[in-house]
């Protein structure tokens, strides 16, 4: 039986924004908190570095275990015979969702700049980019 996905997981951007306490509860409920033999191939330290996340060693251990279990769980699908089944990236049978090439009003710049921690000459200011 499928575990109920707790409210708070929003996967639309492919990012799990579940608070740590909820995630721990989720993994407990689904039995994912057991030691796994990690067949996921996920290297949390490497992925965290790619995502510019600074994690402590303890956090890396925690997430390595949790993420491995999640991936292991998803791999259940491999128990099915998937020969000839194309990978599915959308559940909806929609295609060709286009808009016409028409210009719509943009945001007012003052409005846009309200979210800029720092700005100058109408530009967002970021730490100096050194290539």
């Amino acid at each position: 039986m499928e575990p109920a996905v707790p409210a708070g997981i929003r996967s639309r951007h492919g990012v799990c924004v579940l608070p740590m306490s909820r995630l721990q509860a989720f993994t407990r409920e689904t039995g994912m908190d057991h030691e796994s033999t990690d067949t996921s191939g996920i290297d949390v330290r490497y992925v965290a570095n790619l995502a510019r996340l600074h994690l402590t060693d303890a956090e890396i251990d925690t997430f390595q275990g949790q993420l491995s279990q999640i991936v292991d769980y998803v791999q259940t699908i491999n128990q099915l015979d998937l020969t000839g089944i194309a990978p599915t990236s959308h559940a909806h049978p929609l295609e060709n969702v286009f808009r016409a090439d028409e210009v719509k009003p943009s945001l007012d710049r003052a409005e846009v700049m309200r979210n800029a921690p720092q700005s100058r000459d109408g530009q967002f200011i970021v730490p100096k980019i050194v290539e």
Binding site: V103, K104, S106, L107, R109, G122
Partner: peptide
């Protein structure tokens, strides 16, 4: 998005 494509506009005036 529907923002105009154009060169030479004032910075960040064609955004949403």
């Amino acid at each position: 998005c529907g923002c105009a494509v154009g060169f030479g506009a004032e910075p960040n005036t064609q955004t949403c």
